[in-house]
């Protein structure tokens, strides 16, 4: 492959009991790119993320990441260590642990149990944590258990954890579901901010949000790509209209 692509899904098919959730899906992501993936319910968006992060193994097809590593042969931790971070729709943080500990566990570094037994917080780690706490506006809550945070704060904490992981590629599943307009806008800003240093794939339903992001859009339908291009082109595409309105 050309060294220029970051992620390349090549004819990926996933079937559950004969039902094809992904059907020969192909997709190319450039380094530093932000991509929005939209599609009706059941189009296979989450399944696509599952395949990239190693949660689901495809029946056929390859997932090439960076310099010819085929992700389909790796498991979740190995893929995460390659620098792919994932945010779930519902905030999932480690509730009994403090905000500080949550971030610390996410911080890039050795994941070995033997290392973890003896690890002490280094000054550079402390500095990085302080920086992150400021970014996600939880400096005052650093020693509170994550369980005590509000819903919005948990969302932010999770984003902080993703940043702490320092990934090259970020997968974000429906980040604004259930958010107010203001929050939605703020999240769009945050994603654009993140995109300055990393590649991002965002799955979303919300057209306004996708428009606010202003990036290239891929439309999934029945497990394969229906259309690709700017949001305006997409919204005029009769096939896309058919898919969204025809149901």
């Amino acid at each position: 492959m050309t060294g220029a692509t970051l992620l390349y899904l090549d004819g990926v098919t996933v079937s559950f009991d004969g039902f094809k959730a992904l059907n020969a899906l192909s997709l190319v992501l450039e380094p530093g790119e932000m991509r929005a993936v939209i599609g009706p319910n059941g189009a296979g968006k989450t399944t696509m993320m599952d395949v990239i992060t190693g949660r689901t193994k495809p029946d056929t097809g390859r997932v090439v990441y960076g310099e010819n590593s085929d992700l389909t042969r790796l498991d979740e931790p190995a893929i995460a260590r390659l620098g792919i971070g994932r945010k779930f729709q519902r905030p999932t943080v480690f509730e009994p642990l403090t905000v500080h500990d949550n971030l610390m566990l996410a911080l890039a570094g050795d994941r070995n149990p033997w290392f973890a037994l003896w690890a002490r917080e280094t000054p550079s780690e402390r500095a990085r944590l302080d920086e992150l706490l400021t970014t996600i506006r939880l400096v005052d809550d650093r020693d509170r258990p994550a369980a005590d945070l509000s819903h919005g704060q948990k969302q932010w904490l999770e984003i902080g954890m993703l940043l702490a992981q320092d990934p090259r590629l970020l997968l974000v599943d429906e980040p604004v579901a259930g958010m107010s307009d203001a929050e939605t806008e703020e999240t769009a800003d945050l994603l654009r901010e993140i995109n300055r240093t990393r590649s991002v794939v965002v799955v979303e339903h919300d057209m306004a949000f996708v428009r606010a992001l202003g990036v290239k859009v891929t439309v999934l339908h029945e497990g394969s790509v229906l259309a690709e291009g700017s949001i305006d082109r997409i919204q005029d595409d009769p096939r896309v209209i058919e898919v969204y309105l025809g149901r």
């Binding site: 995460a80 480690f94 009994p96 994941r111 973890a116 037994l117």
Partner: peptide, 28 residues
């Protein structure tokens, strides 16, 4: 009390999430 213990607690409550952070729960 160590970082190891915190990973354990994370594994106990949300095992799959730790995998996506790059930890191998089974070795812990």
């Amino acid at each position: 009390g160590s970082r190891f213990g915190k990973v354990l607690i994370a594994v106990r409550d949300t095992e799959s999430r730790t995998r996506f952070l790059g930890y191998r729960p089974e070795s812990y």
